Amino acid sequence: MTTTTTIAIIGKTPLAQTLSKGRYRILLFGWECKEGELMDCPIEASWEADIIVLAAQAEEMAEKIRAVAVQKIVLSNGSLETLQTLLPHSKVVEFSNLSPEQRVINISGDDGEALYATADLLRSVGFFPDIQLKRNKL
């Protein structure tokens, strides 16, 4: 028996729209899509999720979901350093340079396991991730 990965998508981005077409359970807050379940609040959506995509108001939403995002992968196009500070117990992965035409997406973060899990997720919906592991500054 296999389990389905649950992804909470907070806000709307081209990445979120593409993920909603994959074989995942999608929880939506802040936009509607026929492939996902609408949620009443970002905390509820994030609580149930394995992976959280912060597509809108990343810093504000990070503060709201901090308590339920522990040990979860959090994808965002917001500042990696800022989000990692706001979500110290999460595995933050930043995405940038999303090119729907070429399907190339840059991802970076300081947790190698989270980066490779994110890369696998992105490959499964047709993207070509370019991975950059950033070293944690002590």
Rank of each mutant, 00 (worst) to 15 (best):
L75R: 08
L115A: 15
L80C: 07
D111Y: 13
E101H: 07
D111R: 14
T118A: 08
L83C: 14
T118E: 06
L86P: 08
T82S: 09
L87A: 08
F128P: 05
P88H: 13
D110Y: 04
G112L: 14
L115I: 13
A117Q: 14
Q71V: 09
V74C: 06
K72P: 14
Y116C: 03
V92K: 08
V125R: 01
V92I: 02
Y116T: 11
S79R: 10
E81D: 14
N77A: 12
F128I: 03
S76W: 12
A119Y: 08
A114I: 02
K91N: 08
A119G: 00
A117N: 09
V70R: 12
Q84H: 09
S79H: 10
E81S: 15
L80I: 08
D111W: 14
I105C: 03
L115K: 13
A117W: 00
T118I: 07
I73Y: 01
V93Y: 02
P88N: 11
T118G: 00
E101N: 07
T82G: 13
L87S: 06
I105S: 05
R103P: 01
V125Q: 09
S76Q: 12
L98V: 01
G126C: 09
R103F: 02
Q71F: 15
E81H: 14
S108F: 10
L98D: 00
S76D: 14
V125F: 10
F95T: 01
H89A: 12
E94V: 11
S76P: 07
L75D: 07
G78E: 10
S90N: 08
Y116M: 15
N97W: 03
I107F: 03
Q84S: 14
A119W: 05
D120A: 10
S76F: 04
E113I: 11
F95A: 06
I73W: 02
D110N: 08
K72H: 12
D120G: 06
S99T: 02
T118R: 05
T118Q: 11
A114G: 09
L83Y: 02
H89K: 05
F95K: 00
L86K: 12
V74Y: 02
D110G: 05
E101L: 09
P88R: 12
S90Y: 02
S124C: 04
I105M: 10
S96L: 07
G112S: 15
K91L: 04
P100S: 14
V125W: 01
V93E: 01
N97E: 07
Q102C: 15
L87H: 05
L87Q: 06
L80H: 05
L122W: 04
G112N: 13
S76K: 06
E81R: 14
E101K: 06
